[in-house]
Design a binder for these strands. Structure first.
Lengths: 140, 140
DNA sequence: ATACAATAGTTTGATATCAAACAATTACTC
DNA sequence: GAGTAATTGTTTGATATCAAACTATTGTAT
């Protein structure tokens, strides 16, 4: 497990990005949320109302994780849940007004993250990076 | 937080690599260990006896995390701890014979990880990847 | 219609991890 | 030498996360 290992780097970047996001969320008055919460909010901002399983797919997290994440967002008043009209197994998740009001903040944070991560990285290299990382992701 | 986001990919790869490592450790009869344990073992294989703070630096984890990780390795018999001869604050960590016997397994796992992650990725692209990821890492 | 399989989401248990606070030891300043 | 700052590692608290097991509901086969 050599420190120069790409996988090691990926782990460190992951941690740092998450810490950055957590700090930024706090700066925007959205304290107590983790990056994953932010991801859910982002999905809801984009897609409106979704099922829990869809959240699982969109942010690629375990079902039970989604339950916990959503419950916290509900508790904080950002998200609401209702039963599907046709299938009683299905819960549908959507933003509350309070949640929707976070849009500017979420967008700002997203922009800052990109700015921070990609400083001094050319557009072309971003594309290369994305391509290579996608390959690695698919290798697992 | 767009799913196409590089940072998102990094997070997923991190998780998958860790899961892969965990599974491989188990396959090699080294169950109950996490990738970070493996990293510590790797460091000790390479460097012999080190201080706790050195472990913190080598694998870039929080001091308290190192304490927990090392304690588990001690409990499992892979690692031993002794006080420094000159400074009573310092603990020195080294492999036990049992720990040292894991070397072939650790090496094998490391090789498998690389093989898995870098399948279909040229040597040149690995260098590019490392360079770009290092930049991103330094940006945070 | 009944029985079983599949699905949706929850509950439960475990854990690596960070950060803050802390105690003991050593280093440094006067 | 005394007092304070710095260092080392531990303790404590919190948490996102996964995975297994589970319950309720719906789908499918007979």
């Amino acid at each position: 497990m050599n420190k120069d290992h790409i996988i090691f780097l990926i782990g460190r970047i992951n941690y740092k990005a998450n810490r950055f996001l957590r700090d930024e969320l706090e700066k925007h008055g959205i304290a107590g949320l983790a990056p994953s919460h932010g991801e859910i909010l982002g999905v809801l901002l984009m897609r409106g109302e979704v099922q829990m399983t869809q959240l699982t797919e969109y942010i690629d997290k375990d079902k039970s994780t989604i339950t916990a994440l959503v419950n916290k967002l509900i508790w904080l008043g950002y998200v609401k849940k209702r039963k599907d009209d046709d299938d009683n197994r299905i819960s549908r998740i959507a933003l509350t007004e309070k949640g929707a009001s976070l849009k500017p903040g979420i967008m700002d944070i997203s922009r800052k993250l990109r700015k921070k991560a990609y400083e001094n990285i050319r557009e072309r290299d971003k594309k290369i990076l994305y391509t290579l990382l996608s390959k690695i992701n698919m290798n697992f």
